[in-house]
């Protein structure tokens, strides 16, 4: 297994915003195929900045990022469109992600840009909506759906691109307990390399066998989720804590 190309490989990634604020100070990370890795960390740790490097939205200036063996290079437009098809990012606010007039058209947006048309496109859209249990809402407008339903459609928009790696930014935020549960069931069944940025520690524990802690722009811990969450000193140093009443 060790010679298999990792889904994601990050080496020495550093990044500073144009205003001088430095968000990442040399991040190293390797995620193998089929792994689910939770990225934990306090607010302002650089989690979202890291995510935006994965598909070249933020150009890499220092360090390198590979997706399934392909180097992410913001200058190489042709390879960038391939990278963007491989990295499926589900953003935090589904209203940012769902911009088309109907659910079906929104799910079709990504595969359409990849050049699919007609029956093939329809089939992919239906399959993706089926995977998140939203097929019956295909012709509805996004603003007529509940927040939890919109989040699920947002996941479908990305699944329709058949990504190599699924990146979820705070997937459980603002969801009621039932929606949170339904989304967890969907994510567990996907069998796809997943990177999950979250503050929701029970969610990370439930879905990801491996976790990393990103704090101050570097990876401060990387390992088995249970071991990391069991280290209360490590957690408190990084402004993380288990919810009251939660035990591993």
């Amino acid at each position: 297994m060790s010679d298999e190309t990792p889904s994601l490989l990050i080496e020495g990634l550093a990044f500073a915003y144009p205003d001088g604020h430095q968000a990442l100070f040399g991040v190293n990370l390797k995620v193998s195929q089929g792994e689910c890795v939770a990225i934990l960390g306090p607010n302002g740790a650089g989690k979202t900045t890291l995510v935006l490097h994965l598909n070249g939205i933020h150009p890499t200036s220092v360090g390198k990022v590979w997706i399934a063996g392909t180097l992410v290079d913001a200058k190489d437009k042709a390879s960038l469109s391939k990278i963007r098809a491989k990295v499926g990012i589900v953003f935090q606010d589904p209203d940012d992600q769902l911009f088309m007039p109907t659910v079906g058209e929104d799910v079709a947006f990504g595969p359409y840009n990849m050049g699919l048309r007609g029956a093939e496109l329809e089939g992919i859209v239906d399959t993706a909506l089926q995977q998140v249990g939203m097929l019956e809402f295909k012709d509805r407008a996004p603003h007529h759906l509940s927040f939890g339903q919109r989040r699920r459609v947002a996941v479908a928009t990305v699944l329709a691109m058949k990504p190599e790696i699924l990146v979820l930014d705070e997937p459980s935020s603002n969801l009621d307990p039932a929606s949170r549960r339904e989304l967890a069931d969907i994510l567990r069944d996907l069998k796809i390399t997943t990177l999950m940025v979250t503050h929701d520690i029970p969610y990370a524990y439930e879905l990801c066998e491996r976790s990393i802690i990103l704090s101050g722009g570097v990876v401060v811990a990387d390992g088995d989720t249970k071991t990391i969450l069991g280290d209360s000193k490590l957690l408190s140093e990084n402004r993380l804590e288990l919810p009251v009443g939660f035990s591993l």
């Binding site: 598909n55 963007r84 940012d96 992600q97 911009f99 058209e105 947006f109 990504g110 840009n113």
Partner: peptide, 20 residues
């Protein structure tokens, strides 16, 4: 700002200036 975030989400799904 929402417009900017939407644009990011569009780029992430391969938008190159042409709508379906």
């Amino acid at each position: 700002e929402r417009g900017e975030r939407v644009h990011l989400a569009m780029l992430s799904r391969g938008y190159v200036g042409v709508m379906p």
